[in-house]
Amino acid sequence: MMKELLYAEFVKIVKQSKTYYALVAIAVIELLIFITAYYQGSTILDLLLNTLRQNFYFEGSLLNGNLILYIVLNSLWFNVPLILMIVTSGLLTDEHKDGTLQTVMLQAVNKWKFILAKYITAAIFTLMVIGFMMLSSFALAYAVFGSGDLVVYIGTLNFFEAKEAFNRICWAFASGSIAMIFYSTASITIAIFIKEAAKTWIASALFLIITNLLLKADFLPAGLNSFFFPKLIDTWQQLFNYKIDWQQIGLNNFMLLFYCFGFAALGIFAFQKKDIG
């Protein structure tokens, strides 16, 4: 039963035009980053390293593929999750809008299995989108800008050699994928409660904005604060601290997965209890 449900969800995702709009939107974001970096990259770096120029000569270039990939990674803060939330919430809101949900529920389909299939599809779709984003940006960034050392500012100005930068970027994409799955999961849960597409998008965008704002706010006790989900979505960025705290990153991602299951469990419970109509 689950296999068939998953297959049906994938057919829907492949057939709907929204999926391709999402991929095009991500490609456009990437392209804009590339064009800006190509024409203004040197100026931006000059601005960043201006103080250091008083004391140092620089040999070699920092405007390279790794810096571009780091900028692309920064779209994981808002642009990419917003697109993902719109598409994945559509997995349910479209069913409400088209009235297909009632039709499916008239069949011998378990409600919880039906909604679980949507959560699994959303997670796999999210991974595929991040995979697409990763491959396309890696190919373009290295083809146009080449490889080289990466500089990032996280408390201190951190420099990484090209190979190290590549590894960290790969890990950051992997960690970022979990944050994106969290947003996709949350968007389906929101869709279960709201049902209507436009309202779900607004609520999802609000959820995203609030999560980003709460990242900087510290009003919970220190022990709890670090496990509050808005504090976990930046875990991918911790891979650019000069010394990586793998244990903390592992724990954060584990907690984020726990929140994914929590949101999904809440959604499944609510869907199970709700009348379809």
């Binding site: 250091l52 620089f58 040999e59």
Partner: peptide, 8 residues
């Protein structure tokens, strides 16, 4: 081969 910062 790498990026290096040299003091003036």
């Amino acid at each position: 081969k790498d990026f290096v910062m040299l003091p003036k």
